[in-house]
Design a protein around this nucleic acid. Structure first.
Length: 849
RNA sequence: GCCGGGGUGGCGGAACUGGCAGACGCAGCGGACUUAAAAUCCGCGGCCGCAAGGCGUGGGGGUUCGAGUCCCUCCCCCGGCACCA
């Protein structure tokens, strides 16, 4: 076919479907008309906040972004057509390491790199044809955004939720920065897979653990169960007790006890040793001279071990005796105090009571070092023989003095209470969740708005002085120290309290902090006085529908919930939770079924797909692939099916059938006149009903599918309807009014998934701009109803024939007709019909003997 | 190891609440149109079998008139957690 030059935005009817031209034309028009600008309030419309996770500014939109965003857009458009005032914003998660690494590698400033990427990605996003309100675009690296990120830091600091502490932290030697616990995967850096080391450093933390209990509750949230479960597991709540053991000889600093957390207070009398984490502050103090050398060597070795080495459960237990002893407060017994790296400083109290008989780890430790094993929970039928492994099951308490004879489950509470009564412990709850480490020793992030004054110590930067701007001129050297530390101009400042010389904090904020509140800023993106104004927050928060990848289940989604709760406690936002509904789409894979990556050579570039097939076809195909929550491989050959469908649809609308029920010409474009009754052929007389049934049945399916994000079956339903209309058209003359109604519904249903084509065909058939401002049609169940249905006739559960009967036929009638069916008649001849099961519109089953 | 999710044609997948398994597509085969090809259109298509019929939703067992769907058990794949006391 020769290339045809046409009016870009309004090709003439009957022309060939040229998606690329047509889509650009409508995108321009929508932008000119600000069709998708969302006011804060529209009289008579309820607000609906639909949000899809914003992209990191990596430089290119990849297929995963399309897979996440295009269906989200369809859902948002559907809500809009349903009458909501829908906010569907877009922005850029623009701070982060890759920008800085690019700077180190190749002579480009992180800001320039990022800004260029944003330019590029904005263009790619616009090509998607989504209803993003670009007036609310965010860039987390812009001073007028990170100013408020810094403000949030100060806000949390005021609330006592931000603190600086020296603690062992996760250090990635490749990224040259610390990492939050959530960024360590299997002991390695989430970003670069390098083994993580432990370093002791003074760092800033958020006290997310204070909200552990609240974060555990997901009441009222319409979230996937598995995401809630992942969060619960991550938070890891354990009920137990804290118990103190007296030190035989108090430490030099006066400490006279070792406190431990245990989930098994019932086994307290089975303690035969104690274990401190090697980093535990008591270690240095209680170690005897005789043991000092060995202890120091062990502590040193632990320091150098990576997290992978330390956390391996395969490894044999190791440890060293400190020479010190502690005393069991119940039994009065003296037990040795060891250090071992299976005790973790950051969980519980950093110390463990060793009960080898009832804890497998303690058992292995005791066996390795020939420590005694004492059974205090008798396994049922136990004859007193030595254990070959720890006994973890229920039983009766023995060798436990006054608690002997108690079932151990009761013993847990009894001992915890006893400890409380005696003042050396009590019931406690421990969480696996750690406080959120937010300091990063890198340049491209929001500077932490804090100062260190010789006189006043740690001083927050006054709010009026925000933002603490990132200086442009810095040296990028991966030294393990923030590049900001090398910039004297940045560092040197004066104390706002006393005016003396002060130094700025040179670490920057974890970029997860930028994304913990961005959804609030969309509600009020240009506010110069507040992060988000009260009215804007009331208008839009919380987010009604959030969509994004499940890889953020325990990071972004947990952090954002923490932020929101802290904001709520400060009276800044309504409700308790930021995201009322969450839908997590799956991951899109390469055609080979593996994760897309350049090294595997299985990357499919969305730009090329869009160029070749058009945004509408690409959007629809991503929806058609399969269940959205599942993701799956992207088959480059499959999209042709969707493209063919859109071409057929184009032909269907631009080449309408011969119609009856005149006047024909007006009935398509103008208002419909009442249909004069006139004799027509039987086939034509039947067609309006059939056509309307098809249209309204499809409308029922599509409406329900959109409500449930079942977009694959939605596309299938639209294809079926297109095929059906095609068949009706090709069969002969069609009723004009029914055709008009059917095609109108089809285009309206197409609008969420293929907004350009729907708009084009809507315009070509003379309907008023814009289809995206039309209300979603209501299905008429009466029209959707089937009058006759095919049912299966079974004999003893096996299908032997089919019958077409009236949909509301009663059992007797169907049975009578079935008995006349030859195959059925032969099978029931001479037998007794014992039972008849009739499922209307489905089947008739005759049970015979 | 523990906790989730999942195994359906050659492929992606469909199947409301236990009711005709394989919708809708891709690839394939046959045909029409064409000088030819592409594109398009029509038709076929789970497996075995000439047919009648039989067998089929990871394997085995069960409940039921009837099981992809419910119960028991085993296998495999994916995700999360894992020395958290």
């Amino acid at each position: 076919m020769t290339a045809r030059t046409s009016d870009e935005s309004q090709p003439a009817g009957g022309a060939r479907y040229e998606p690329a031209e047509l889509e650009r034309g409508w995108q321009r028009r929508w932008e000119q008309d600000a069709l998708y600008a969302t006011p804060d309030h529209v009289e008579g419309r309820e607000n609906w906040y639909a949000l899809t996770m914003f992209p990191y500014t990596s430089g290119d939109l990849h297929i995963g972004h399309w897979f996440a965003m295009a269906p989200s857009d369809a859902a948002a458009r559907f809500r809009r057509m349903q009458g909501y005032n829908v906010l569907f914003p877009m922005g850029f998660d623009a701070f982060g390491l890759p920008a800085e690494n690019a700077a180190i590698r190749g002579q480009i400033h992180p800001r320039d790199w990022t800004m260029a990427n944003i330019e590029r990605m904005r263009g790619q996003l616009k090509r998607m044809g989504a209803m993003f309100d670009w007036r609310r675009e965010l860039n987390t690296s812009a001073p007028d955004y990170y100013r408020w990120t810094q403000w949030w830091f100060l806000q949390l600091y005021r609330q006592g939720l931000a603190y600086r502490a020296e603690a062992p932290v996760n250090w990635c030697p490749s990224c040259n920065t610390t990492l939050a616990n959530e960024q360590v995967v299997d002991g390695a850096c989430e970003r670069c897979d390098t083994a993580v080391e432990q370093r002791r450093m003074a760092q800033w933390f958020f006290r997310i653990t204070r909200y552990a209990e609240q974060l555990l509750g997901h009441e009222g949230l319409q979230w996937p169960e598995y995401v809630k479960l992942m969060q619960r597991n991550w938070i890891g709540r354990s009920e137990g007790a804290e118990v103190s053991f007296a030190l035989e000889r108090p430490a030099p600093d006066g400490t006279a006890e070792i406190r431990v957390f245990t989930t098994r207070p019932d086994t307290l009398c089975g303690v035969t040793f104690m274990v401190l984490a090697p980093e535990h502050p008591l270690v240095e103090q209680i170690t005897t001279d005789a043991q000092r050398a060995a202890v120091r060597a062990y502590v040193e070795a632990t320091k150098h071990a990576t997290e992978i080495e330390r956390q391996s459960t395969e490894r044999e237990k190791s440890g060293v005796f400190t020479g010190a002893y502690s005393v069991n407060r119940i039994t009065g017994e003296r037990v040795p105090v060891w250090i071992a790296d299976y005790a973790l400083l950051t969980y519980g109290t950093g110390a463990v009571m060793g009960v080898p008989a009832h804890d497998q780890r303690d058992f292995e430790f005791a066996r390795r070092f020939a420590l005694p094993v004492r059974v205090v929970i008798a396994p049922p039928g136990w004859d007193g023989a030595p254990l070959v492994e720890a006994y973890l099951g229920p039983g009766v308490m023995v060798h436990s003095g006054r608690f002997d004879g108690l079932p151990n489950e009761q013993g847990k509470g009894a001992i915890a209470q006893y400890a409380e009564l005696e003042g050396w412990g009590g019931p406690r709850i421990a969480y696996r969740l750690r406080d959120w480490l937010i300091s990063r020793q890198r340049y491209w992030g929001a500077p932490i708005p804090m100062l260190y004054c010789e006189q006043c110590g740690i001083v927050p930067v006054p709010e009026q002085q925000l933002p603490v701007e990132l200086p442009y001129d810095v040296e990028f050297r991966p030294t393990g120290q923030s590049p900001l530390a090398l910039s004297e101009r940045f560092v040197r400042t004066s104390c706002p309290q006393c005016g003396r010389a002060a130094r700025r904090e040179t670490d920057t904020l974890d970029t997860f902090m930028c994304s913990s509140w961005y959804f609030m800023r969309y509600a009020d993106p240009h506010n110069r006085e507040r992060a988000v104004g009260d009215q804007a927050a009331q208008n839009w928060l919380p987010v009604d529908q959030y969509t994004g990848g499940s890889e953020h289940a325990t990071m972004h989604l947990l952090y954002a919930r923490f932020f929101y709760k802290a904001a709520r406690d400060a009276g800044l936002v309504p409700g308790d939770e930021p995201f009322t509904r969450l839908f997590s789409q799956g991951q899109i894979l390469g055609p080979d079924g593996r994760r897309m990556s350049k090294s595997r050579g299985n990357v499919v570039a969305p730009d090329a797909q869009v160029e070749h097939w058009g945004a509408d076809a690409f959007r629809a195909y991503l929806m058609f692939l399969g269940p959205w929550e599942q993701g799956g491989p992207y088959d480059v050959d499959g999209i042709v099916g969707v493209s063919r469908w859109l071409h057929r649809l184009w032909a269907l609308i631009t080449q309408p059938p011969r119609t009856v029920a005149a006047p024909v010409a007006e009935s398509i474009h103008g208002p419909l006149l009442a249909q004069p009754p006139r004799p027509v052929a039987a086939a034509v007389a039947e067609s309006p009903r059939e056509l309307r049934r098809l249209a309204h049945r499809t409308l029922q399916r599509v409406t329900s599918d959109l409500e449930h994000f079942q977009l694959n079956t939605m596309i299938a339903a639209l294809m079926e309807m297109t095929n059906g209309l095609q068949r009706l058209r090709d069969a002969g003359p069609v009723d004009a009014a029914a055709w008009e109604e059917g095609t109108r519904l089809l285009l309206l249903m197409l609008a969420p998934s293929c907004p350009h084509l729907a708009e084009e065909l809507w315009a070509q058939t003379g309907r008023p701009y814009s289809i995206h401002q039309q209300p979603w049609p209501a299905a008429d169940p009466e029209l959707a109803r089937r009058e006759s249905v095919e049912i299966a006739v079974q004999v003893n559960g096996r299908t032997r024939g089919r019958l077409t009967v009236a949909a509301d036929a009663d059992e007797a009638a169907v049975r009578a007709e079935a008995s006349g069916h030859p195959a059925v008649r032969d099978l029931i001849a001479g037998k007794t019909v014992e039972r008849v099961i009739y499922v209307p519109e489905r089947l008739l089953n005759l049970v015979v003997r």
